[in-house]
Amino acid sequence: MKRVLLFVVVLLSLVLSACGGAPASSYPEQPIEIIAPANPGGGWDTLARTIQVSLETEKMVSQPLSVTNKPGGGGGVGLAYMAAQKGTDYTLVVYSPPLVINNINGTFEGKSYKDLTPLAKLITDYQIIVVKADSPYQTLEDLLNAMRADPKAIKFAGVSSPGSMDHVAFAKIAKAAGIDPKQLEYIAFAGGGEATTALLGGNVTFLSTGIGESVAQLEAGTIRALAITAPERLTSDLLKDVPTVKESGYDVTYEIWRGVFGPADLSPEAKAYWEATLKKMVESPTWKAQLEKLNWRDAYSPSEEFTTFLGQETETYRALLTELGFAK
């Protein structure tokens, strides 16, 4: 069924792109596949589809684009698929910090971002620390003081495994505040909904998660934000009064970046093409409208910079995960 659907979509796009008239460049000469290394509906899938929609709406790519889901292994199945595309030019993939984390904790069995060609960092989200609206903790410092007094009494929830984003983000703050990150009582939930329910039901003291996960409850006023991990305050009405961790006196930021990659050994021609196209895309009205709609923040940086950034990320995570005992 999906095959047929795909065929129809491809056929339609072919017809449509033929009507639009193709630009003169020789690359791309084949349809492009964007891999979302997770199930439909999640962050990676949303990004992959947003890229597809933006590029198609703006008619920036002369070839049809399709999104394929390769879920499994925290992105590992997608990474294995990309490894098989080594040296080809027509498959892109989207990733975020688990690309680095799952390399360090051994999930990817040695594979890393070095088995891909980083093309651009596109967007970023930050971590937010939220408590129930009627929680006695008014500031991040209140919370940290309680943890200093008795680290076991404070349980916190997140949506990823221990040693992954939600856990590590707060471990970073705790470490800066002089609390042994190994003492933290972290409870992993399978989804933002479950974790939020646990928070609202008073089963955990606070929740450490991506801002995007908590927007609905913040708007409803059922939860309260204590801090965000952005370098400076955000400008939206909802979040402009939430202090940064830095303001609380700890020099900690934490970024949930999302970017686009090609397979390893991407040809220089294709690499140049995607660098230019993605740069054009992030400036397009369609892309900007999508960011607004999805509450995402632009964090564009080109291939070179992105690659350097990934190197730094690997160092930071390795240090943190080693301390927490999750590095392999």
Binding site: N39, P40, G41, G42, D45, T46, R49, T50, G191, G193, E194, T196, T197, V215, A216, Q217, E219, A220, T222, K293, L294
Partner: peptide, 27 residues
């Protein structure tokens, strides 16, 4: 009402709604 999917299927629907720019939730 909650923006919390109560089943696998509604979890997928939640994802689709987010992509359409709607945030299901108490509001």
């Amino acid at each position: 009402c909650l923006g919390i999917p109560g089943s696998g299927t509604t979890a997928i629907m939640l994802g689709a709604l987010l992509m359409l720019g709607l945030q299901p939730g108490p509001l």
